[in-house]
């Protein structure tokens, strides 16, 4: 089976831009992976995501060179609507992607486009609303919801389509911590149970790092680091670039600078606690 995502020698610049926004991206993501994409603001994360569901080049135009293959389909050769059945895309700004008159109708939109039987649509919409906790908002107008509520609806509308690959662009920027955690758990469950491939853009890695299998760091349109959460988060270079590493990892670094060396860099509170207890006894 082909990998979920394969990007080869990708160069891209927006119409009218002189500089490449993406520069020589090479990337393979296996099926069932859980990848976090991070990097300074403006480095090209959203742009890369747009390449994965065909918005680039089909919608944005610009100079696109290289190959992007998602779920076995070459992005260049398939329309967005065909790709949408394979890759779900949750946009950075929740409000821009909601347009129906009610939450329920919005979540059903993609399924209606796929001409699924009505009973199936109803079933999937119910499931997606439940899993994202928006069942009670079913009848509300999306533009009258709070930012966080809108974000959940946006996620539900993509989940309902049951894609093989899901790209989430800062899906928790408007969510409260508990909801962010719930979202990561839902995504992790889907990732484990249905081998849904996840690519998630995020700046705050404190809540997310325990769930990720791999972190990719971008800077100025290039991939500059790629590896396990532990190796990426403990790297000095990544920190100085402005990646928001978890505070416990930061604490480990600060201790190290002061000559206190713990065994391995922790990426969660639990790990650091365990390590400290081990050292005390």
């Amino acid at each position: 089976m082909s990998p979920a995502i394969e990007v080869r020698n990708l160069f891209y610049s927006y119409p009218g831009a002189e500089k490449h926004t993406l520069e020589n991206i090479n990337l393979v993501i296996e099926r069932g992976d859980f990848v976090v994409l991070t990097g300074p603001s403006g480095c090209g994360k959203t742009t890369l995501c747009r390449c994965l569901n065909g918005l680039i080049p089909h919608f944005y135009g610009g100079k696109f060179n290289g190959t992007v293959i998602v779920d076995g389909l070459s992005v260049k050769d398939h329309p967005i609507s065909a790709l949408a059945q394979h890759v779900g895309f949750v946009f950075q700004n929740p409000e821009n992607q909601l347009f129906a008159l009610s939450v329920e109708k919005d979540i059903a939109f993609g399924l209606e486009n796929l001409a699924l039987p009505r009973a199936e649509i109803i079933k999937r919409v119910k499931w997606a609303m439940k899993i994202t906790g928006v069942t009670e908002l079913r009848e509300n107008a999306p533009h009258e919801l709070s930012g966080g509520q809108q974000q959940r609806v946006a996620i539900a509308s993509v989940l309902a389509m049951n894609p093989h690959v899901m790209v989430l662009d800062e899906p928790t920027s408007f969510l409260d911590p508990m909801s962010s955690k719930q979202l990561f758990e839902v995504i992790q469950t889907l990732n484990k149970e249905t081998r849904l491939t996840i690519i998630l853009v995020e700046h705050r890695l404190d809540l997310l790092s325990p769930y990720a299998k791999r972190i990719i760091v971008m800077d100025e349109g290039k991939i500059i680091a790629d590896g396990s959460p532990r190796s990426i988060l403990s790297s000095k270079k990544v920190f100085s670039l402005g990646v928001g590493i978890p505070k416990v990892t930061r604490l480990y670094q600060l201790l190290l600078e002061n000559g206190v060396s713990l065994d391995s860099p922790p990426i969660s509170v639990k790990e650091l606690e365990r390590e400290l207890r081990r050292r005390i006894i």
Binding site: L114, V158, M161
Partner: peptide
């Protein structure tokens, strides 16, 4: 953009 990303026009 949002509609096409949700398969508008697929069928």
């Amino acid at each position: 953009e949002a509609m096409e990303s949700r398969a508008f026009g697929a069928k």
